[in-house]
Every structure is written in C-alpha cells, then in structure tokens.
C-alpha cells in the first residue's frame, strides 16, 4: 500500500479534494452539489489517505473521531432546525441573514443544515470505511 507515488499524490490531492468538497457544499443551493456529495468527496479524500498512509495516520490528520463528526453534524443540523423554534416559527423554517456575505453569499439556516449534512455524511462514510479497513 505504501507506494511513494501514491503517497505523494495523495498528500498533494488531499487539500485540493477537501477544498473541492467545501466548494460543492457551498454552491449546492444554486448549482449541482450539496452537503451529501460534498461530504462524500471529503470522506473519499481521507479514505484515500488512509489507503496510502494507513488508518492510524488518517485518524491523526482527522483530529476528531468520525463518531464525533457524526455527532456534531447531527447537532448542527438539529440546531439549524431549532433556531427558528426559538423565534416562534415552525421547526426548520428558513431564516436568512438580510445581507450577503463575501464568499458564502446568501446565508441562512438551510445552509447551516446542509453543513450538518456534510459533516455527518463525511463522518458516516469515514466511520464505516475506517472500521472496515482497521480489521485488515
């Protein structure tokens, strides 16, 4: 598994892929993309890294455990739904900032929700793949 070419390529690719996944997430509301695909690409990037450098290394660069990724994804998604509740609106109502932010554009709770999806999907895919790989 530890071929030098693969290893080097992955090191170069990893930041690019992660960046691409965030790009997919952010543009999802307007163009093809979204939290799902973004999360899967992120997970794929790290899985490739694990393939090249080993599962332990992948855990190291992840910093957080995939399980925590799942938990935080759920937390983010849930809070995007609960925030409107606080203002007396139905669960998961879209609340939008009145102005556009640079880079992110129009920001509102649906985007937050998509971020939750992104985190969770990435965590899910990683948890499955890494625990299967660990068994090797």
């Amino acid at each position: 598994m530890s071929s030098i070419i693969l290893s080097t390529t992955i090191r170069l690719l990893l930041p690019l892929l992660l960046l691409f996944s965030v790009f997919l997430l952010l543009r999802g509301h307007n163009e093809p993309g979204g939290g799902f695909v973004g999360g899967l690409v992120a997970a794929a990037a790290i899985s490739l890294y694990a393939l090249a450098e080993g599962v332990a290394a992948a855990h190291r660069i992840l910093i957080v455990n995939p399980r925590q990724l799942i938990a935080s994804g759920l937390l983010v998604a849930l809070s995007s739904g609960v925030i409107p509740l606080m203002t007396g609106r139905p669960f998961q109502s879209g609340l939008w900032l009145p102005y556009s932010l640079p880079v992110l554009g129009h920001v509102g709770t649906p985007l937050l929700f998509d971020l939750g999806v992104y985190l969770l999907v990435a965590g899910m895919a990683l948890l499955i793949v890494l625990s299967l790989m660990e068994e090797e």
Partner: peptide, 9 residues
C-alpha cells in the same frame, strides 16, 4: 433527537 445527540457527544 436532541437526547440522542447529547448521548453521542
């Protein structure tokens, strides 16, 4: 759901 998330955390 919140309880589940709290438990996961």
């Amino acid at each position: 759901l919140a309880t589940a998330v709290a438990c996961l955390l």
